[in-house]
């Protein structure tokens, strides 16, 4: 019996699901609503502060984790939804979905290191 390689993608999917459930809504609320609408101090998202965050080691890690794991979670979910809807995509589209998430991860790492 051949061992499936799904555990790699499922682990990334699971980690992304956990992270998006825990921090996703609050990230959207803070960065998308609360700060722009002035419910929170606008200084919270001042350029210098965000830059300093992106330049710190922990900040870089957090940014890459959020971008990469969210992408892997979403791509895995979309891939399986297509299957559940009766659209049986082959290996090509599976590679494209996970490749997109991998490319996003590489881009996030490169850009975050360049800050």
């Amino acid at each position: 019996m051949k061992r499936s390689n799904k555990p790699i993608f499922w682990a990334l999917f699971g980690a992304g699901g956990m992270l998006s459930a825990l921090v996703g809504p609050m990230l959207i609320f803070i960065t998308g609503l609360a700060v722009p609408l002035g419910w929170l101090d606008r200084e919270t998202m001042r350029y210098e502060r965000v830059l300093a965050f992106a330049q710190s080691g922990a900040g870089k890690l957090a940014i890459v984790a959020v971008i990469s794991l969210f992408l892997f979670h979403g791509c895995h979910r979309m891939y399986h939804c297509l299957h559940d809807f009766g659209i049986h995509v082959g290996r090509g589209l599976k590679a494209a979905f996970h490749g997109f998430a991998a490319a996003g991860t590489v881009a996030a790492i490169v850009l975050v290191l360049a800050v």
């Binding site: 019996m1 051949k2 061992r3 499936s4 799904k6 499922w10 399986h80 299957h83 559940d84």
Partner: peptide, 16 residues
Amino acid sequence: MPVVNQEDGVWGCTLV
């Protein structure tokens, strides 16, 4: 475990 680990084991499930 080999039955669990294969593509048609637990990985065939999408948690419907």
